[in-house]
């Protein structure tokens, strides 16, 4: 990890109250992995806001630097990407930053999603703003149709809130849009994809997979599922239950109010399944679903 001042390259809306931020990544710093996060210090733009803490955000993508062919000069720096929701004074201040301005970053922080084991198919589930790290993971695992290995399932409150749609279609990384084209959706109001939650969409896919079992074709059932998730607390509690019922590996990226971001203050804990607490910033943010008491965390 390192603290550095990064130049903001992109900071634009991709959905109502959702922003896509990209900043230059130091050439000598290891690239972030899906699941890892960074903290950013919001600039002081609202004098009366009075925020003092850094804000944690998951990486949603990474572009390697491009190097000139016949020299070792960089023709384009590396960029780290994130998507975030404007929720309060801190994120409002971040959203006001113009490309070219400088942002105080500490990165990369936390652990990353493990790769699926041999013979496992990655099922990547994201809910709301939690889709950020899942897009990054899906890109690395090559999510696509049934024929490829990983499947992306994304949940939103309504079709109107799906990013890069309508007036936001020009925003966002091309790779994200490709992933969205191949993703399964659920919406709370039924305006797109499976009506209901991400869990409902997964149940439907699971049922389909069971029906296809033994048919001999390349299908969902040929591989064991490895469930990856990020989203609101109730969604993760529900997905943990789904994974346990169907005996599948599951890894979720969790969220909690955070202060130091490096494991020192013990502020950002979640209840552990075995008793006690685990720190989201330093023990996670990615946890084997069985290690967290998700139900207790929702209450």
């Amino acid at each position: 990890m390192r603290q550095f001042n990064a130049t903001v390259a992109i900071n634009r809306a991709i959905a109502p109250d959702w922003m896509h931020m990209a900043f230059e990544w130091p050439s000598d710093l290891p690239a972030p992995k899906p699941g890892q996060f960074f903290t950013a210090l919001p600039p002081v733009v609202e004098l009366r806001a009075g925020t003092i803490l850094r804000r944690p955000f998951a990486f949603a993508g990474f572009e390697e630097a491009q190097i000139e062919k016949d020299s070792s000069m960089l023709s384009r720096p590396a960029y780290a990407h994130s998507i975030y929701q404007v929720r309060g004074p801190g994120t409002r201040a971040l959203a006001s930053m113009q490309p070219g301005s400088s942002l105080d970053i500490i990165a990369p922080l936390g652990n990353a999603f493990p790769y699926p084991e041999r013979g496992e198919r990655a099922i990547i589930a994201g809910g709301g703003i939690g889709i950020g790290p899942m897009l990054f993971l899906a890109e690395q695992l090559g999510a696509g149709t049934y024929a490829s290995s990983a499947i992306l399932v994304l949940g939103f409150r309504s079709a109107l809130l799906i990013p890069f749609s309508g007036s936001f279609s020009a925003a966002g990384l091309p790779s994200w849009k490709k992933l969205l084209e191949k993703a399964f959706f659920s919406t709370d109001d039924g305006s797109a994809g499976t009506p209901g939650t991400v869990r409902d969409a997964l149940e439907a896919l699971w049922l389909q997979a069971s029906d296809l079992k033994g048919s001999g074709t390349k299908n969902l059932a040929q591989k064991k599922w490895h469930l990856y998730g990020c989203g609101p607390g109730p969604m993760l509690a529900s997905l943990a239950q789904f994974a346990a019922q169907n005996h599948m590996h599951a890894h979720f990226s969790a969220e909690q109010w955070m202060a130091c971001g490096v494991g020192a203050c013990h502020g950002c804990v979640l209840p552990a399944a075995s008793g006690g607490f685990l720190r989201v910033c330093a023990d996670g943010p990615v946890f084997d679903a069985r290690t967290i008491n998700w139900e207790a965390n929702v209450q």
Binding site: T51, Q256, W257, C268, V269
Partner: peptide, 9 residues
């Protein structure tokens, strides 16, 4: 330690 949430700004 205490149950979460443990922090508020």
């Amino acid at each position: 330690g205490n149950p979460p949430p443990r922090l508020v700004e």
